[in-house]
């Protein structure tokens, strides 16, 4: 156990160091230490660190942590190893709401736009959950995945249509088609960190109830758990987490798919342990993907949302292939 905890911590620290050090402007350890000693706005290296790398790191920590936890909650709720907020259209919902707000309500205030992500995420999460058969108890992997696919396709077609009807929308669209960590400084980071912490706390709180629910609705009711309340709380947690991640970084698919199996392997089968490990693993994976995206075509930068999509597709295929469908239908 100690070895595994150490492994999580080591990967996490490595990811943080990589995020601070890698980029167009290489940064040495001395520069970081110098900045800690006292911030000198005339030193270009320290400015890069404070204005570019640190906001990027903060954005990655919040978005990656939130999406990792959201993925774990989603997989526990749907009992489906192929569940992920991106795949199930939740972040498409958040993105669509923000685009709509920016284009048609004429909003440009970052805080209000970020707040719009939450109702969008909530509506999409509920719609996909219902379409995917959440209420009837056993959402099968195909049905749920296709419900998410349909939701994403619909929202994307709508966004495509909006863009063709409005010429000035292309720039907005670019941000919302694939997420990036580069805009951390423009976002209300503290407030969104707070919201995702609340989501994490809620997820930890209902974890044992979700495990009871996984035994079946009848059994859960017999043990004094109300399935509807637990499902509602889980959807709320998913909304808070995904909404804040999308508000910071735009849509990032597949992170919620990659993190839970890693967390289970490293932290064990207990859902609460998994949820405790998930944010650290999520942030590490996201930061690694981001660093890779900045190195691969340097000096150009590949958006982290594109990197996770490329990494996540094969993971999806691998999980699908090893599914024991007798169990999950």
């Amino acid at each position: 156990m100690a070895v595994k905890l150490g492994l999580i911590l080591l990967l996490f620290l490595l990811a943080v160091a990589l995020t601070l050090g890698v980029g167009v402007q290489g940064l040495s350890w001395q520069a970081v230490r110098g900045a800690m000693g006292g911030y000198d706005p005339n030193d270009p290296l320290q400015v890069v660190l404070a204005e570019i790398r640190l906001p990027r790191l903060a954005a990655g920590l919040i978005a990656g942590g939130a999406l990792g936890v959201a993925g774990s909650v989603m997989q526990a709720l749907t009992r489906n190893p192929l569940a992920d907020p991106g795949l199930l259209g939740v972040d498409a919902g958040a993105a669509f709401a923000v685009v709509l707000g920016a284009l048609y309500l004429g909003q440009s205030d970052a805080g209000i736009l970020a707040a719009l992500a939450f109702p969008g995420a909530a509506l999409a999460a509920m719609a996909v959950f219902l379409l995917g058969g959440g209420l009837s108890g056993e959402p099968g992997p195909i049905r749920l995945t296709l419900a998410g696919l349909a939701m994403s396709a619909l929202l994307l077609s709508l966004v495509n249509g909006l863009i063709l009807l409005r010429g000035d929308a292309l720039e907005v669209f670019r941000f919302w088609i694939a997420g990036t960590l580069a805009l951390g400084l423009q976002k209300p980071l503290l407030a969104l960190a707070g919201v995702s912490l609340v989501g994490w706390w809620l997820a930890l709180w209902i974890a044992p109830l979700l495990e009871t629910l996984a035994l079946g609705r009848g059994l859960a009711r017999g043990l004094g758990t109300s399935p509807l309340k637990v499902q509602g709380a889980a959807l709320l947690a998913i909304t808070l987490l995904t909404g804040s991640a999308v508000a910071i970084a735009g849509p990032i698919a597949f992170l919620g798919l990659i993190v839970p199996p890693l967390a289970r392997r490293l932290a064990g089968r207990n859902l609460r342990h998994e949820l405790l490990a998930a944010p650290f693993i999520g942030a590490s994976v996201l930061l690694f993907a981001d660093a890779l995206g900045r190195m691969i075509l340097a000096p150009a930068e590949v958006r982290v949302g594109v990197m996770t999509a490329i990494l996540g597709g094969p993971v999806f295929v691998w999980i699908a292939r090893s599914l024991r469908l007798g169990e999950v239908r």
Partner: peptide, 17 residues
């Protein structure tokens, strides 16, 4: 069907790249 979906996701990720 699921593998097909996954291959589709991978291909669209690479396409965006």
């Amino acid at each position: 069907i699921l593998v097909g979906l996954g291959i589709g996701f991978t291909a669209s990720g690479l396409a965006t790249f």
